[in-house]
């Protein structure tokens, strides 16, 4: 019998005792531990998130800025086209559309990519025990990086049209944080349900497509002419608005904030309950 006294001595001192019990008695504690342990592994998911993006654009000239370039082309093309169609001035519509698209891209990527959140990491899940939240943080982080690349377009647009949003723009920062939190919670839920029921990703994709058209991204709320109930009950509108409005120099309405608070609360409860109840099942499902 030999006990190793190699260089791992340091790791050895912090004896890791772990108990995993079956049943649901410990489920809330295990779920909370998972979330905290996941945050502690930020070095891992930080790198993985970067690699996910670099992977796609490796050896291309612009690298991740291809994201920016293709988004910029879309913003300009749609901005000019819809300004003409809706008879709105380009310098009003284009900045609006630019921000709408950037925030929508962030939000919708959470939903459409959530389907493969756990099933796509099957190789890891089946081979080693990692906190499940690591996979969620990783995807959230890479989406934030993409968002940051797209923000460059917004800066270009406000410089070109000489727009200065003023102090209201600062409200976009908590707004973005709330959008990320909701995206994270939604993708956790969808990721888990998708691991169990393989039709979910397809359903989500088609719903997201419809949501894009019914949410004011490339059209403005004024065009609804009084039928604003269509907006009040659209959660995506409120989530987009709390980031878009400040960056255009207006403070989002109290209604927006109230709706977002409600959405976040529901999301927290649903995701929390789901994760607590079914966390241990994820490895069986993938």
């Amino acid at each position: 019998m030999t006990i190793s006294l190699n260089k791992a001595g340091k790791a050895r001192n912090q004896q890791s005792v772990s108990v995993i019990e079956g049943g649901l008695a410990n489920a809330p504690a295990m779920a909370a531990k998972d979330i905290v342990m996941g945050i502690r592994m930020w070095r891992l998911w930080g790198r993985q998130g970067w690699n996910d993006i670099l992977q796609r654009y490796r050896r291309s000239l612009l690298g991740p800025f291809w994201l920016t370039a293709s988004m910029a082309i879309m913003v300009v093309a749609l901005g000019v086209l819809y300004a003409e169609l809706f008879k709105i001035k380009v310098d009003t519509l284009l900045p609006y559309l630019c921000l709408g698209l950037i925030v929508w891209t962030l939000l919708s990527s959470f939903l459409t990519e959530a389907g493969s959140l756990f099933t796509g990491s099957e190789a890891y899940i089946k081979q080693i025990r990692l906190p499940y939240s690591v996979y969620v943080y990783r995807s959230c982080w890479s989406k934030l990086i993409i968002f940051a690349h797209n923000v460059v377009i917004y800066i270009g647009v406000i410089l070109y049209f000489d727009i200065w949003p003023g102090a209201a723009a600062l409200l976009a920062i908590p707004g973005l944080a709330v959008v990320l939190l909701n995206g994270l919670l939604l993708s956790l839920c969808i990721g888990m349900v998708s691991a169990r029921f393989r039709d979910i990703p397809q359903i989500v994709t088609s719903l997201v497509q419809i949501a894009f058209f019914v949410t004011p991204i490339f059209w403005t709320p004024e065009l609804l002419r009084g039928r604003s109930f269509a907006l009040d009950f659209n959660p995506f509108y409120h989530l987009v608005e709390i980031v878009r409005a400040p960056l255009l120099g207006t403070v989002p309405s109290a209604k927006n904030y109230l709706a977002v608070a409600l959405i976040t609360l529901v999301n927290l409860i649903v995701a929390g309950a789901f994760f607590t109840r079914f966390r241990a099942r994820i490895s069986y499902w993938v």
Binding site: V17, V19, I128, S283
Partner: peptide, 11 residues
């Protein structure tokens, strides 16, 4: 990797 349905694992 698999958490048991019942029972406990101590390491």
């Amino acid at each position: 990797i698999y958490e048991p349905i019942s029972g406990a694992v101590r390491t």
